[in-house]
Design a protein around this nucleic acid. Sequence first.
DNA 1: ACTCTCGCAACTAACGTTGTTACAAGACGA
DNA 2: TCGTCTTGTAACAACGTTAGTTGCGAGAGT
Lengths: 134, 134
Amino acid sequence: MKRNSRLSLALHTLRHMAGNPDRVQTSADIADHAGTNPVVVRRVLGRLREAGLLTSEKGHAGGWKLARAPESITLADVYLALDESLIATAPQEQPPACSIEHALHRRVSGVMKEIEESLIERLRETTISEVRGE
Amino acid sequence: MKRNSRLSLALHTLRHMAGNPDRVQTSADIADHAGTNPVVVRRVLGRLREAGLLTSEKGHAGGWKLARAPESITLADVYLALDESLIATAPQEQPPACSIEHALHRRVSGVMKEIEESLIERLRETTISEVRGE
DNA sequence: ACTCTCGCAACTAACGTTGTTACAAGACGA
DNA sequence: TCGTCTTGTAACAACGTTAGTTGCGAGAGT
Ligand code: FES
Ligand code: FES
């Protein structure tokens, strides 16, 4: 229901896999684990696969596995893989009648872009495997 | 339809008023001006009034007016008045069963908080009246 | 063949946002 | 006092987004 449940699901799953990098897990396993539905898991992890973070195999003994060393996967990689800007700036659909409105929008979305940049920068500082419980 | 149309409406209206600070405008005027509905305008501007940016009067010759000098109103004031965090972090409804999930959430929302801080800081650098067309 | 798995399309339900109508309450002027 | 203007607020419809669910086809392995 929340806006970043996809990010939470992705991070938790990756971190969980980082604890056992060679184990193959099915989307049903993961869904159980995360209290959700296998299809939802495949939807989210599918994006991570497109970004090269995971691999998936069909058939018997198929499932999901990390595609890279967990130490090389940063929070920013996950955030970008999902490509849902948490920083919202409406893309100004109409050419604005009023030039001041235009200027305001430019100003605000300029700041937003900067902020998103620095968000990604900050997220790049920590890898999946660095985060531990308590 | 977009996530920040309230912010756009608020900023544009305030900037428009800044050009003529003593003029009283009705929500119908403003709605015409912004291509929306008077009730929507009252909803958004109501928040700005609660934050002390505007005043409103009922009755004949009533309407909306700036409560402060436009040079003293920053973009951050408006953003905060609307108090809709553009930086979304789900407030972690359940106590998380898994401590790693908890740690991940803490890390991410810590970063988000910082980022929102710096967003506000950046927005505080410009006042309403500073923004001009072309 | 059979079974397991992903991939994908379609649908529902819940939620948030905008726009709209309706009406009460207050303020002002005639 | 009466009429009119305006805000304030509630209620509703329309729409988009998201999570969840079902169903089924396509590969992969036994
Ligand atoms: S349950 Fe495995 S990391 Fe949370
Ligand atoms: S129309 Fe007046 S500021 Fe845009």
